[in-house]
Design a protein around this nucleic acid. Structure first.
Lengths: 350, 350
DNA sequence: TTGAAAGCGCTAACAC
DNA sequence: GTGTTAGCGCTTTCAA
């Protein structure tokens, strides 16, 4: 350690103050201090007050490692998301964090970049903290991870998507459903050659399901379901433009496109404008996630909105309830989604 | 604990496997296992291999609390940001997380909502984990937090903004500078009644500094510096529209507005369109953060871009270097920012 | 309401 | 290259 503590408020010797130091200063036993800190109601008023003063004076901070080791659990909750680059997950994380922090729990962050092997590793590493519970986004995990999580004996929430057989607790909405709804919306608007275009779709189970729902709904209506385009760069306006180029190169006759997210859709619309291609006249464009860019584009983009931040908050609440009160009756919450209709899919050729 | 472990891979008795169980199974002492796990090169090949197998078979996971307690430090780094709702901070966090995870460190997340008292509390709580280092966004902290952090004897990075007197390490760009640059850009484009409009500006030190730089640069040019509007709702397209309304109500003659972020600017542009107010003809509009909405708006919005994700990555690298090699020679990195000029501030009345 | 003893699972230091 | 010993700072019994 290259640095050295120089703060005034410290135990003699320059060490960080321990519960022992606080006890000595107050003149009680160490365990009394521990109790005064964790369950103030069980110690006498005067003692409680003097402990408070000594803690303040010494700058005492509970050592979480010691506390966790002795008690076998810690007030920490690992939260695993695919990525922070996508606003949808940032919003989810925000919801979780706000709710958990309010209850004195800390979030340990992990990102998988949509890779199952990374998730396996992360779960292993994070379980080492003896967490009170764990929140995962997504419902598709390796067999090893599922076994490990069940074996850990802690509360687990799978969030964002809906699980057929939840590991424990589950909150989200149907990604398959969003695909079906998008196809229905475009087809019912009179579009006949309806495409999907997205990036990094193979690894991301959410888009795999969305595409499956999308294609199924098209087939049901007797429409072709093979206008599917997958890119591999991350989402950006530029990527949206490129996707549109590729799409029109491969399928020149498409009359509607559902993009993996609003940023791609907005980028495609910019490209349409460059090409002088009318939206929605010639081509209907639809996105997902209800990103600001969808309302700010011209034309404004029809999108799919889901309460991502609220999913995070609900996930956190379900977890806390389970930690405190045991398994709840409601193990699975479907928060739903809705289509926000805007200009980019208006009209069509009914 | 309402649940119970039922996994197959466990030590006898249903407990979670400890290093002791691994040692017994391999037939070596416990410390040998510990070494095989942390510094494989110091144990013999065969032992290393048998430990690996036993770990696998038992599903052993290192107990971080025990490890941290025994060693006095942990591979965990608290990262404190004002909020996750703003994409700029999500990008920063993403950069930190990616870099740290790659080196086997875990991120403990804290958000302050721009409140100094919350930051104080968070720092206290998070130091309890005996972290290897700590990353804060912002450079303005309470005296108590400064003292505490210095006393903790760990590496600390203040990120995003530039500090006059860094606590330890510092990486970011000048927020005052962005304000000056925005004012200069608008004034040099011939605008004479130049306004600033933002939300939640009192608590956010970054915007306080940006406004200070903005006003100073206007005064330097002999322009009025009192066209300043502060809202108090969070940033959104709607809030941008409202700000524009208020602004034109109070200062009907403004000819340019610098918004606190691109989303507000985009919302204002939508409102201008509703009112039939020409941008940039009648009013120049400028934003900040280089959000997608700035390129996707019509007209496209001039903005200020800074490498937020990279700041996070650099912060993480500086921290790791400091943890591993002691205080580095470079303690302060200015990553700079740039104005991205687009249509929304073109022309003017030179 | 308070205290004493024991030990959580690991690592540092020092043998061998 | 491997083992022994002694804690790290707290919480959990159990007892007073």
């Amino acid at each position: 350690m290259p640095r050295r503590g120089t703060a005034t408020a410290m135990a003699a010797g320059g060490r960080r103050a321990t519960i022992r130091d606080v006890a000595d200063r107050v003149g009680v036993s160490l365990i009394t201090v521990s109790r005064a800190l964790r369950r103030p109601e069980v110690v006498s008023g005067p003692v409680r007050e003097r402990v408070r003063e000594a803690v303040e004076a010494l700058g005492y901070i509970t050592n979480r490692a010691a506390s966790g080791l002795a008690s076998g659990t810690s007030r920490v909750v690992p939260v695993i998301v695919p990525s922070l680059a996508r606003p949808a997950y940032a919003a989810f994380l925000d919801g979780v964090q706000a709710e958990l922090a309010g209850q004195g729990f800390q979030v340990l962050l992990g990102t998988t970049e949509h890779r199952v092997d990374v998730e396996d590793q992360l779960v292993g590493a994070l379980l080492g903290w003896a967490p009170a519970g764990l929140i995962l986004s997504g419902v598709d995990h390796s067999a090893g991870t599922r076994r490990r999580l069940r074996g850990a004996g802690i509360a687990v929430v799978e969030a964002m998507d809906l699980a057929d057989e939840p590991l424990d607790l589950n909150v989200g909405f149907s990604h398959r459903g969003t695909g079906e709804a998008a196809a229905a919306h475009l087809a019912d608007g009179g579009r006949r050659r309806v495409a999907y275009a997205g990036t990094q779709t193979e690894m991301d189970q959410e888009s795999v399901k969305r595409i499956a729902g999308f294609r199924a709904a098209l087939r049901e209506r007797g429409l072709p379901d093979h206008y599917i385009l997958r890119g591999d760069e991350p989402s950006s306006l530029a990527a949206g433009g490129t996707l549109l180029d590729d799409l029109l190169g491969r399928f020149p006759d498409v009359d509607a496109v559902f993009f993996g997210d609003d940023v791609l859709a907005a980028g495609a619309i910019l490209e349409c404008r460059r090409r002088g291609l009318a939206v929605p006249g010639r081509l209907a464009v639809m996105g997902a996630d209800d990103h600001e860019v969808a309302s700010a584009s011209t034309p404004a983009i029809t999108t799919i909105a889901a309460p991502r931040r609220e999913i995070g908050a609900v996930a956190a609440r379900m977890l806390l309830d389970s930690i405190r009160g045991g398994p709840p009756e409601v193990r699975r919450v479907d928060v739903g989604f809705r289509i926000v209709e805007r200009e980019s899919t208006k009209g069509g050729r009914t």
